[in-house]
């Protein structure tokens, strides 16, 4: 049979090498486990949906603790290693990540996680419990995403970029990483929540998607050709300062080809391609123009 993706008595089969029988499960269910594991860190799960037996499909509506940890008769009788250990300790190391994650995916296979098996996080052996705290009375991920500590614990380069002067309001708590990214996997680069970079950006910046009469080619291809969305030392999250960014692709006769230097900011002689908004002082419709004479993105 195919490997099941949905809940049922197959939990333990996905986790341990030997198929498990009804008789392998603790006869008293959670009460058996709580006899020893009766501390707040563990029992807080009773305050969550996972611990509510009235919720259809929840672990406690099924095999209780063993729905996720697998039937562990040897653990009950002789304190041997449980079938599935999520957070390892010196005594019992964490189970294989794929075994752990399969336990979660048995129930949580959804629209949001459909690309998990091919995701970068899966390839990096990230466990679901690396981000999610299951035995917690609050939705830890939801809360933690708001202050970004969770993602930025690993993504240190992005943490630094978000501290730069020009950035999306992530540190300010008005956006979260998963406004743009799907940490459970995506077919798009960078695990973006939409299908392409541009589709992700224009979900909020819809005015820039046109289609314009006069398109600016990099705009139609990939916003990150010019912008660094995690933050930049330049205004408007530009990767490089104007006019030098523009001159990377434009070297026409006269002003696009000139060398701009200190001479162009000197008092009494500043250059109109250099100061203020630089090139976009005039080419202000840089993302595209719908004016019939707007070929140079000035109208």
């Amino acid at each position: 049979d195919s490997q099941p993706l949905l809940p049922g008595s197959v939990y333990a089969q996905s986790a341990s090498s030997a198929p498990q029988q009804d008789s392998d499960y603790a006869p008293q269910g959670a009460q058996t486990c709580l006899t020893c594991h009766n501390n707040p860190v563990v029992t807080s799960i009773l305050q969550t949906g996972h611990g509510n037996s009235n919720i259809s499909g929840s672990p406690f509506a099924n095999r209780a603790c063993e729905s996720c940890h697998g039937a562990s008769p040897d653990h009950v009788s002789a304190l041997q290693e449980p079938a599935v250990v999520f957070v390892g300790s010196g005594r019992f190391p964490a189970s294989d990540v794929q075994v752990q994650n399969q336990m979660c995916l048995n129930c949580h296979q959804s629209r949001e996680t459909v690309h998990w098996s091919a995701s970068e996080h899966q390839a990096a052996d990230l466990a679901c419990v690396s981000c999610h705290t299951i035995h917690a009375s609050q939705s830890s991920v939801t809360n933690e995403l708001r202050d970004q500590n969770l993602c930025l614990t690993c993504h240190l380069e992005q943490r630094s970029q978000l501290n730069r002067r020009s950035h999306h309001p992530v540190n300010e708590g008005l956006m979260s990483c998963n406004d743009c990214h799907n940490p459970h996997g995506s077919p798009a680069v960078g695990m973006l929540s939409r299908n392409t970079v541009n589709e992700t950006c224009t979900s909020c910046h819809a005015e820039k998607r046109g289609p314009f009469l006069w398109e600016h080619q990099p705009v139609s291809e990939d916003c990150t050709v010019c912008h660094n969305p995690h933050g930049s030392t330049q205004d408007r999250m530009l990767a490089v300062r104007q006019p030098f960014l523009c001159q990377s692709c434009h070297s026409e006769t006269f002003h696009p080809s000139f060398l701009y230097s200190g001479d162009d900011i000197a008092a009494g002689n500043p250059g109109q391609s250099m100061v203020g908004s630089s090139c976009t002082n005039c080419h202000s419709l840089i993302h595209g123009s719908n004016h019939p004479s707007g070929a140079r993105l000035t109208r």
Binding site: D1, S2, Q3, P4, L5, Q98, Q109, R111, V114, H115, W116, S117, A118, P187, N195, E199, R209, G210, P211, F212, N290
Partner: peptide
């Protein structure tokens, strides 16, 4: 979008998106 188990730990997943943008 979809994911299909092909047995054991083998998975086949994918998506197809058609979009039209007009102005």
């Amino acid at each position: 979008s979809g994911v299909q188990s092909l047995g054991g730990t083998t998975r086949l997943s994918g998506n197809l998106v058609i979009m039209r943008l007009e102005q």
